[in-house]
């Protein structure tokens, strides 16, 4: 378990709190946390690269959009992603690259299906030089 990622429990769903030194790293780690819910990331190789770009009206909505985009990529292209580099992150726009591979049932176990990244109890905050995001997923 990474020290910067802390899952929390909820009766029907799952979520996590993620921390980082800056906003770009926070988005990258949240993405890692998403795929960590879906599979054992030790089994995923960074073979193919995807370029991503998302926009939203504030940083909370941007986090939801970013993770939703990754979940969409996972569900429609059957990919698992394991490495993320956020090139630029502002309050409303993010550009990033992600590496991973197509799901191979022989090597990968997909644990769960994420219906959606929710706005519920969502926070993306900075305090004392540490960025923290709290995100809940509908599974």
């Amino acid at each position: 378990m990474q020290s910067w990622l802390r899952p929390f429990e909820h009766t029907a769903d799952v979520g996590f709190v993620v921390t980082a030194a800056n906003l770009a790293e926070l988005f990258a780690r949240a993405a890692w946390g998403l795929f960590d819910l879906l599979t054992d990331l030790e089994t995923v190789r960074p073979r193919e690269r995807s370029a991503l770009s998302v926009t939203a009206e504030d940083r909370g909505a941007l986090m939801v959009r970013w993770l939703s985009e990754l979940n969409f990529l996972h569900q429609t292209e059957h990919r698992l992603l394991c490495r993320f580099e956020v090139d630029q992150a502002s309050e409303t726009r993010l550009t990033a690259q992600a590496w991973g591979e197509r799901i191979d049932p022989a090597r990968h176990t997909v644990r769960t299906e994420i219906k959606a990244v929710t706005f519920h109890g969502l926070s993306v905050e900075q305090a004392d030089g540490v960025w923290t995001a709290r995100i809940l997923f509908d599974v």
């Binding site: 899952p7 429990e9 909820h10 009766t11 029907a12 769903d13 799952v14 599974v139």
Partner: peptide, 8 residues
């Protein structure tokens, strides 16, 4: 309705 989280 559930009375336990999935983790629990």
């Amino acid at each position: 309705g559930r009375n336990m989280s999935r983790h629990a």
